[in-house]
């Protein structure tokens, strides 16, 4: 029984062959996460239902007490913000997965294998983006169920979805970087807590103009605010009409902010991954 050692193929010599390995290995890592969903659906279901619950809470418990600018429907106002919040909360998933693998030595085992080094990260990104698409689909269904609609046609609605996923993609790299830097379970708790101010100090639930001066400035500069404002505009939902530069250029910022985050955190994450060997 011991004499049946398989022979592993040698690393490919061509660029195309290497790309093939990178894709195959990335898919293996993505499949690992998909298997997690199948084997342990509870956390996935909770993760999908939590934002739904939040929407219902805001819509039915608090909604009556909030007036929407321009007198629009509160739910129309709320739902696009919750879409963006769902994208922000995704950073926790990425972070916890990366930090967990590093702590358990799984990252080291991957690094000791003759696999494509990029696959750990690309596989993770693909799995997390798939999870986000699923999460967004559930939220859209939930929004439609409570009366939210898009008003500017399917093209604009798809553009809005694109902006939301772009924000998620940017935060993915933040999550990967933080996960590689983090040490121990305290860091996990810290990130889970810090996600909240990032989500709430924004235009998602309240107008930055109504906040204390300095907080309003931060809320307007928050990348999340840009995405929320742009998405409301694209869906044709009511929003705060701020006079600030950031509010006037929300559409541009909703593209520039995520790209800037990627430009900073992707190289940081790659460098950090490489420096694991230093």
């Amino acid at each position: 029984m011991s004499g049946t050692a398989p022979v592993a193929p040698a690393p490919p010599r061509t660029a195309l062959g290497r790309l093939g390995w990178a894709v195959a290995d990335g898919w293996t890592i993505t499949r690992r996460d998909l298997s997690h969903w199948a084997r342990r659906p509870a956390p996935v279901v909770v993760g999908l239902l939590f934002p739904v619950m939040t929407v219902l809470m805001f819509a039915y418990l608090l909604g009556g007490g909030i007036t929407v600018p321009g007198g629009g429907d509160y739910r129309e106002f709320l739902v696009p913000g919750m879409f963006a919040m769902t994208m922000v909360f995704g950073v926790e998933t990425t972070f916890a997965a990366v930090a967990g693998d590093a702590a358990k030595g799984v990252t080291d085992r991957f690094r000791s294998l003759p696999m494509a080094a990029s696959a750990v990260v690309t596989g993770r990104s693909a799995a997390d983006m798939l999870a986000s698409v699923l999460g967004l689909a559930v939220m859209v269904a939930c929004g439609l169920a409570i009366g939210w609609r898009w008003h500017n046609g399917p093209a604009a609605a798809l553009a809005a979805v694109g902006l939301l996923l772009l924000l998620r993609f940017a935060l993915l790299w933040v999550g990967i970087y933080l996960g590689l830097v983090a040490r121990g379970p305290e860091a996990v708790a810290a990130v889970q807590i810090l996600v909240w101010p990032l989500g709430f100090v924004s235009n998602t639930f309240a107008s930055p103009a109504a906040m204390p001066g300095w907080l309003g400035v931060i809320a307007e500069a928050n990348p999340l605010s840009a995405t929320v404002a742009a998405v409301r505009e694209l869906f044709g939902n009511p929003g705060w009409d701020g006079a600030s530069w950031a509010a006037q250029h929300a559409m541009t910022l909703a593209v520039v902010w995520p790209l800037a985050l990627v430009a900073v955190f992707l190289p940081l994450a790659v460098r950090r991954h490489r420096d694991l060997g230093r």
């Binding site: 398989p6 592993a8 195959a24 294998l113 696959a119």
Partner: peptide
């Protein structure tokens, strides 16, 4: 199986 695939078996 996952590790085996990463060894490209």
């Amino acid at each position: 199986e996952m590790f085996g695939r990463l060894y490209h078996l």
